[in-house]
Structure formats: structure tokens, C-alpha cells
């Protein structure tokens, strides 16, 4: 394999991991969450529940309720390509709340399979934002894809963890988050009024970005010799 080929292969390999390769040397599964989102005037927001949070975050899932809220993610652009819709957002926050006051007041009800007209009900948005701000993350980007003919899609986002009462549980080098998940707007997903999609996702802690180094083209060539 000649040098040019090695460089091309190298670029292709790094392109496969494009954005994540910039960020991740190590990742850590942090939490699993689900809920509902909607978009209004180009701003995406959502809320929901967190049934699982992993170390190093310190939690008490038995006694406290953990909820999440996405706010102010602004649609920058969108496009349609062969039945696939792509949406690109910037800004916005992902906040995790720890509610210590019982009874837990963030409530969702879908447990009435036998009622054919049931569409699900969810408590007021403020019930997902009371308690303490457990973790605050600011989105660097959030992208989602939607397959029109199938009524489902997926998403991913990168964020900086910047605040919350439990930020110090996370080592400084791991204070970035990467999230992915699936979304659907099918009728059977029991999506409450005022929401468009049901989301199910996970959040990972990822290391600080690897630093870039400037070099000449000759330098890159000599690296592979």
C-alpha cells in the first residue's frame, strides 16, 4: 500500500467516526431516559422521566424522582432527501431535576389499553422542573432524522455539562455528554396532547476533545513513512 493510499484510508477511517472521534477517547453510560417532545416556531422542547442513572452520578432512585427537560433548542436548518427529513438544532439545554418531595408529582398515564380513545395524559411541565437542578447540560448541537413513510426516526446530540448540584460527581475530564435515541409519532405511542414525538434515549459521558495539532502536508506524509 503506497503512502497516498494509506492517507486516504486513514481519512476514510476517521470520517466513519467523524464528530465523535473529535470527542471521545472513552465514554461512560450515564442515564437512560424517555419522554415527549414537540417543536413550536422552530424551537424544540421536551420532558420526561429518567428510570436509570449510573455512577459516577450519585442518585437515590428509590426515594427521589428524576426527570428531564429539554428547552430552547433552535432549529438552524432542515432538509428532505428521498423521504428522509433531517433537522439540525443549536443551543438549548438538557436539564435533569431531582425531586425529593413525595408524592412525586411528575406523572404520565397510559395504562388504559382497553379504552380505544385514550391518548395518554401527562402532568403540567412545571412538575418536571421542580425539585433541585441535579445536572445542567448545554447542547452544542442536536440533530434528528425522521423517516416520513415509517413515522419514526432517531437523534443524537453533543453537550457540555456545566452545572447542577451533582456536577462535581463527574470528573472534570468527563464533562461532555453525547446522547442518542429513537423517536416515533405513531398513534400507538400514546403521545399526550401538546406533544408530537415520543423519545427514548441514553446519555453518555465522554472525555474532553482530543486536541488538534497543526502540521504541514509533508509532515502528515512523513508520519506515515
Amino acid at each position: 500500500m503506497n503512502v497516498r493510499m494509506v492517507i486516504v484510508v486513514g481519512f476514510i477511517a476517521s470520517a466513519v467516526c467523524l464528530v465523535p472521534s473529535v470527542w471521545a477517547q472513552q465514554s461512560q453510560f450515564s442515564m437512560d431516559y424517555w419522554g415527549f417532545t414537540h417543536e413550536e416556531s422552530g424551537v424544540l422542547s421536551g420532558l420526561g422521566f429518567i428510570p436509570l442513572i449510573e455512577p459516577p452520578l450519585v442518585v437515590d432512585l428509590e426515594n427521589y424522582q428524576y426527570t428531564w427537560v429539554i428547552e430552547d433548542a433552535v432549529l438552524d436548518s432542515s432538509r428532505v432527501d428521498g423521504g428522509i427529513e433531517y433537522y439540525y438544532y443549536s443551543g438549548g439545554t438538557f436539564k435533569v431535576y431531582e425531586d425529593t418531595v413525595e408524592p412525586w408529582n411528575a406523572v404520565y398515564s397510559d395504562a388504559d389499553c382497553q379504552d380505544p380513545e385514550w391518548v395518554g395524559s401527562i402532568s403540567e411541565p412545571w412538575t418536571f422542573q421542580d425539585g433541585e437542578l441535579f445536572l445542567l447540560a448545554e447542547f452544542q448541537y442536536l440533530n434528528r432524522t425522521y423517516y416520513t413513510d415509517y413515522q419514526f426516526g432517531d437523534y443524537e446530540g453533543m453537550m457540555d455539562l456545566t452545572g447542577g448540584t451533582h456536577l462535581d460527581d463527574i470528573p472534570p475530564l468527563l464533562r461532555h455528554g453525547w446522547t442518542f435515541g429513537g423517536a416515533t409519532d405513531q398513534p400507538w405511542a400514546c403521545i399526550p396532547e401538546d406533544y408530537e414525538y415520543r423519545w427514548d434515549g441514553q446519555l453518555f459521558l465522554v472525555e474532553d476533545p482530543t486536541r488538534t495539532e497543526s502540521t504541514t502536508w509533508s509532515g502528515i506524509k512523513s508520519f506515515y513513512r
Binding site: 467516526c17 432517531d154 442518542f180 429513537g182 405513531q186 405511542a189 427514548d200
Partner: peptide
């Protein structure tokens, strides 16, 4: 009469991230 089912979800293969 509730035994029909559906499921949905997301997947990723970005092993360099997760």
C-alpha cells in the same frame, strides 16, 4: 384484548462514542 403489541427505538453504531 390488549395482547397486540408494538415497539420502537433507536440504534447507534458509533463505537468510537459509546
Amino acid at each position: 384484548d390488549c395482547r397486540e403489541g408494538m415497539m420502537f427505538g433507536g440504534t447507534t453504531d458509533l463505537s468510537c462514542t459509546v
